[in-house]
Design a protein around this nucleic acid. Sequence first.
DNA 1: CAACGGAAAATGGTATACCAAAATTCCGAG
DNA 2: CTCGGAATTTTGGTATACCATTTTCCGTTG
Lengths: 240, 240
Amino acid sequence: MARQALSVEIADQLRRDILRGKLAPGAPIKERVLAEEMDVSRTPMREAIRILAKEELVLLRPARSPIVANPSFNEIADSVEVLRALELLSGELACTNATDAEIAQIRALHERIAEAYDRVDTLDLFEIDMQFHIAIAQASHNRALSDTHKAFLARLWRARYLSAKQRRSRDRVLRQHGAIVAGLEQRDPGLVKTEIAAHLEALLDNIRRYLDAGEAADLPEPAPSGMAPACATTAGERSA
Amino acid sequence: MARQALSVEIADQLRRDILRGKLAPGAPIKERVLAEEMDVSRTPMREAIRILAKEELVLLRPARSPIVANPSFNEIADSVEVLRALELLSGELACTNATDAEIAQIRALHERIAEAYDRVDTLDLFEIDMQFHIAIAQASHNRALSDTHKAFLARLWRARYLSAKQRRSRDRVLRQHGAIVAGLEQRDPGLVKTEIAAHLEALLDNIRRYLDAGEAADLPEPAPSGMAPACATTAGERSA
DNA sequence: CAACGGAAAATGGTATACCAAAATTCCGAG
DNA sequence: CTCGGAATTTTGGTATACCATTTTCCGTTG
């Protein structure tokens, strides 16, 4: 028996396509078409779509094609607010529960980010950044917390990725990461929480700036109603 | 087109069965058998199981029957800790964002609980209690928050239900609910947060007490139908 | 008698066929 | 030329059949 792989694999692929922009926000997800393209049957494709729906990367509409989520800034801000609460709790718990080895690993990730910052592709850098934040959540030794935190990170993946792509805050990011690590090493919840809050505040600022710029420059391509043809276009681009 | 109903309906039914104890913690969920029993095909049954898995009411195991979740006290405590963070944020935001009408509705629910406390079935009372807490989260006007909060409430449904069934804390519950409502009416985040924290602290105490008593009295009743050996085995592994 | 091995049954994952509702298209009336 | 409605097409939901792996249990063997 294939170890529960196919639908998960499909979900991973779809997620990548969404984040890379191959499937634009607002574009419909036609399970039949995508299943054909990926050469799988509709059943695992359906499951994959459900997985992404649970991550809020796609929106399920009753009796309609699911569409790629296209959250407004306010919706993103709401998610960031929840993420902040989760990360603050993570930081606090990690100060108590993390092992020295875990903290050392978090520092290692921080240094890996610093070392790679100007060297690697944004997406790769972004992956390491995700690991950094996930590692902190896991250091809380609270599975419910780290899982939920991970889910929100996934949900905000696109927004965070677009923010990271700007690369306008190298120094700030590294400084804040460093401060968080230092706070963990000193087991100082206050310090950790302060820095995490500042970090997320800056993230939100970055996203706001990007969306403002994007609106002016037609970046977020709203695709509200007239995207029926856009659908075909996007689907066509997909195979390219 | 059936409005995406069947799998959701099945999920609701399964959830009820789980919470009512018809499907004991640790019992395997055989999609074929259950589909037969409910007279539906395996496809929507599968989806229903995934829905419940996402709520962490059932555990998906690779290449094995899913089983009804049987969280340890520590796992429940972890979830409650996250729930607390979510409810604290909800309360704080609700003080700023809630409309007067929403707060009035929350008060109405509180009074309905007080009125019904000694009159109705535990499960019914519990439903109203859920509505009360959900209403507060929704009053935050943060969809990501209220949705996540709702998910955790669902995840903790069984533990909270078992706690509520004891009915040992009528006065405390009503007093705390009243204080939360008062805090909202005064738009006093400090008061609201204090009371919510106390409320959840008490919940956790209640759950701990129940589980302690249950362990002594063999409460986690083994599976009713013929899957006794598998149930015992799995449950044993789980807690280990 | 216990331990091991293999055949058979059971089970979850996948593919496909069918159905009903919704969206779209197309034709005819005004 | 426009508008309305019916037929067609499209699409998601459901049922069922098939496959691969896992589990179970019995017979063999040391």
